[in-house]
Design a protein around this nucleic acid. Structure first.
Length: 550
RNA sequence: CCGGGUGUGGCGCAGCUGGUAGCGCGCUUGACUGGGGGUCAAGAGGCCGCAGGUUCAAGUCCUGUCACUCGGACCA
């Protein structure tokens, strides 16, 4: 390569040449351009001339341009597909994981995702467990239509006001415009109410404990896989009770079920509490929530349960005759979790190697990777071991041709809780190597005790995930006592902020505007962190969790 | 809805002032390998998001549009 100075001077000279060449070619072309049939050839000739000159210049310059053609080997560094680190760009990390763990693919409609088999299997596991819990507590599954006539949706005014901006409408059937447009359900309170009105007449008809698994549509402007999509899968419970106490108890019972599911099965610690009036569900008298903290310090509402009082029932004219032969209005609740939970799992447990799935909902709980499987007896032994582990967990054996290293990385990306390596050395020692996804620990386990060990290790993984998440939440929870303090924390430390609140909506709004935080919930487990409102300084007896939310 | 970024083989990208579409990964075939994304060899694969416009010539310039993405606003 020539010294820099020389290269620059050469370039100037050559630039003059190329300018000259260009002018020459253009003139040449102009003269002959009327002869249409040769036009193509001329253009080609001109191109060739330019290319030659450009090539000469690049060769002489020896600069950045020629690296590509001259030193192709330089570009041959290993470029392994890996994900963006959380540290570098959390949002990018999230989408990388979602795509590379094969959970979803984007579809051609904005905000609508294709949930792929691996992602759907996670959802099926969630469904199976939660549905079991619903049935244990006496709930029945039903299915409601996906369309709601506009007039029906409008019967409860707060409700429609809350949902109107994000409702999708069906206006035509075939070529004909509909008499009344139909809303694609954003939630089904109105449909359940309309139905309850027809089927509830006596106190003997109560309670009604219904649930449905379905998808709903909300026309979101900003969308993200699982966290905020225009169509998402969920479960919505709708119950009707004779007394307010019973309905309230139902609301709390369901919230507790969600919390139990999140903590025991998903290994995600949650804060149980009530929403402030400002954050309440449209049309509800009280909204309860479980709030989880993500890796980046943002909060994610992971389940919600509403108490409606008799507001909806009155709006829809649901009435029954009580034991004393008097007309009465029932009390209602609704509660739901959605595929958003999958987003919570990703952001609560994931790391720079990809997804980390809690064993309870992992489609594959243990993957067996035979090492040097071409060698005599390895594959046979591996299949035998697979037979053992598949008795005690959802197992997979990967007999694919990829190298072991490739497979290790692949199943880490997919968040498989434990990996089992079995090679000639292990077979000789009658053991195998078990590797935990949550902490990378390698454990040598005798093949004789494998069947007992696997469930133990899976439990250990769940416990490890939970305590890690709990520790992180503790480390990312701060107390604030005044406006400056809460702003300081909100600006510099991601996480939950605990602070007292006087109950005034104005203070809540000011905190959002001034410090950029919203109230997450009024926790059931109160702990006084002061006695004055963090905003206005007036006496306050409610401690709230504040934070930035998804 | 407002603002920024990006659309080029399956994926990630290069293509500077318009001039014969390239690289890496992946894929296919074969051989050797195999305990952390292996090595070598040979191959296949491209309406450059879509629609217009400027030009002799557009991946490149202009206009529109769609999608993805980040941030904000809105919203569970």
């Amino acid at each position: 390569m020539p010294p820099e100075k020389v290269a620059v001077e050469t370039t100037i000279v050559l630039n003059q040449i190329i300018c000259f060449s260009r002018a020459f070619v253009n003139t040449f072309l102009y003269i002959f351009s009327k002869r249409a049939q040769t036009l193509k050839n001329l253009a080609k000739l001109k191109g060739l001339l330019y290319n030659t000159v450009v090539y000469l210049i690049n060769e002489t310059k020896g600069g950045t341009r020629s690296v590509f053609c001259t030193f192709p080997d330089m570009a041959k560094e290993k470029l392994v597909k890996s994900i963006t680190s959380m540290e570098e760009d959390f949002a990018k990390w999230y989408t990388d994981v979602v795509l590379k763990a094969d959970l979803i693919d984007y579809s051609s409609v904005k905000g609508c995702m294709i949930i792929r088999p691996y992602g759907y299997a996670v959802w099926e596991n969630i469904q199976r467990i939660v549905d079991g819990m619903f049935k244990e507590t006496g709930h029945e599954n039903v299915y409601m239509p996906m369309f709601i006539p506009e007039s029906l949706l409008q019967k409860e005014k707060d409700h429609i006001a809350g949902f109107a901006p994000e409702v999708a409408w069906v206006t035509h059937g075939g070529d004909e415009e509909l008499e009344e447009r139909l809303c694609v359900r954003p939630t089904s309170e109105t449909l359940f109410c309309d139905h309850f009105k027809n089927i509830v007449h006596s106190y003997r008809d109560l309670p009604k404990l219904y649930n449905q698994w379905c998808s709903v549509v909300r026309w979101e402007k900003t969308t993200r896989p699982f966290l905020r999509s225009r169509e998402f899968l969920w479960q919505e419970g709708h119950t009707l009770h004779a007394t307010a106490e019973e309905a309230k108890a139902e609301t709390v019972q369901m919230l507790n079920i969600y919390a139990k599911f999140a903590e025991e099965y998903l290994a995600i610690p949650v804060i149980k509490g009530e929403k402030t009036e400002k954050e309440r569900f449209a049309g509800a008298e009280a909204t309860y929530t479980i709030e989880a903290l993500m890796h980046d310090g943002k909060a994610l509402q992971s389940g919600t349960s509403h108490y409606f009082g008799d507001g909806f029932a009155r709006a829809f004219g649901i009435e029954y005759t009580d034991k004393n032969n008097a007309p009465a209005t029932p009390f209602e609740t609704s509660w739901g979790i959605s595929t958003r939970l999958i987003g919570a799992i990703i952001m609560a447990h994931g790391d720079d190697s990809g997804l980390v799935l809690p064993p309870a909902i992992a489609p594959i709980q243990a993957v067996l990777i035979p090492i040097a499987s071409h060698k005599e007896g390895v594959l046979e032994k591996a299949r035998e071991v697979y037979g053992i582990i598949s008795k005690v967990c959802r197992a997979k054996i990967d007999e694919g041709e990829q190298s072991p290293g490739w497979k290790f990385a692949e199943y880490e990306m997919k968040g498989v809780p434990i990996r089992i390596e079995l090679g000639p050395k292990d077979i000789e020692a009658n053991s195998c190597v078990v590797v935990r996804r949550d902490n990378g620990e390698k454990i040598t386990v005798s093949l004789d005790t494998l069947e007992e060990k696997i469930p133990e290790i899976l439990t250990a993984v769940r416990d490890g995930l939970y305590s890690k998440a709990l520790e992180r939440r503790a480390a990312m929870t701060y107390d604030a006592h005044n406006l400056e303090e809460i702003k300081e924390i909100a600006d510099t430390k991601p996480g939950f902020i605990r602070a007292m609140w006087c109950g005034d909506r104005e203070c809540e709004e000011k905190l959002k505007e001034y410090a950029g935080v919203t109230s997450r919930c009024i926790p059931f487990e109160q702990e006084k962190v002061g006695d004055k409102c963090v905003c206005c300084g007036k006496p306050a007896d409610k401690m709230l969790y504040w934070g930035k939310a998804y």
